[in-house]
Amino acid sequence: MSTPLPGFEDFEGPAGAEGPGRPGVSGGHGGSDRLDGAVDSGESGGRHSPADDQSPDRHDSRREIAPGAVHVPGWLTVAQQRELVTACRGWARGPAPIRHTRLPRGGVMSVQTVCIGWHWQPYAYTRTADDVNGARVAEFPVWMVDLGRRALVEAYQDSAAGDGYTPDTALINFYDDQAKLGMHQDKEERSGAPVVSLSIGDTCVFRFGNTETRTKPYTDIELASGDLFVFGGPSRFAYHGVPKVRPGTGDPASGLAGGRLNITMRVTGLDG
């Protein structure tokens, strides 16, 4: 069995925190902050995007970093960030708990990772966490599929961008102030569907490169708490990494006292 790891103590929630089921509303603006986008009973029907809860100039800060790669600052409200942190705390405890991934050549990743839907280990997906405790990983929840679809609509400014998008796995990475992630491609998936990345907690320097090499040209941007980053199309297999986390830049109101939480949703294209 894995045990709590250095840095994980700050990520662990208080006793009684919700498990990895559908998160509830955690303060904020009531029904308008629900991750599933539903409107509370008593209000007019329909669905909404997290964009509706942001400041009027939020759309103006949307930026295309490369073809198919889009940064949307502040897409998640603080209340939505707290809901995601609560859900991730539950997944981090198990059934296959969070761990530092060991690489085939013996190295150990500085980020801590827990997976849902499918378990990633270098360099394959399985349903069971054979490099942790052999347990089957938690199911990928329906509300996250909806969240991923709405993320694509927002990033690409196209009401049809999320049609048919059905992510079936997420890698949830926790960075302490020393953690880094080297330049790599997300290429274990058998699908070219976009990757949806959500950031909570401390700001990081995110390096987004090209599809041919780990070296230049690349663009460094800062991903802050609540930011959305999507990469698909010509940029789906671009190299990317995190050379630095800026400690103390997060807002504890997000539910994360320190460190950075990154959730990346993907479509594996696998059966079974």
Rank of each mutant, 00 (worst) to 15 (best):
S159Y: 02
E83G: 12
P122T: 15
T264W: 00
L152A: 01
R136I: 08
T128K: 14
G42T: 08
A160F: 08
E222L: 06
V39E: 10
W143Q: 03
H48P: 01
G255W: 08
A124V: 15
P97W: 07
P122C: 11
M265T: 09
V153S: 04
R214A: 10
V142Y: 15
P73N: 02
R190T: 11
L5R: 12
G192Y: 05
N262Q: 10
A69Q: 08
V245T: 12
Y156E: 03
R136A: 13
A170W: 03
E9L: 06
V142A: 14
R93D: 07
G24C: 05
L147F: 15
L228D: 00
V205G: 01
V132K: 03
L181V: 11
G226K: 01
A17G: 13
Y239V: 09
L198E: 00
L228I: 06
D163C: 07
D130M: 07
C204F: 00
L261I: 01
K180I: 15
Y175W: 11
E154H: 09
D10R: 15
T128H: 13
L76Y: 07
Y239F: 14
E64L: 06
S49K: 09
R58P: 01
R246I: 04
A161Q: 02
G74H: 06
V145K: 14
A129S: 09
A129R: 11
G31L: 06
R22N: 07
F140W: 09
N262E: 08
A38R: 15
G117V: 13
A66W: 10
G164N: 03
D60F: 03
G250A: 01
E18W: 02
R105E: 09
N262C: 08
G201L: 01
S2I: 05
A66N: 05
E212T: 14
D177S: 15
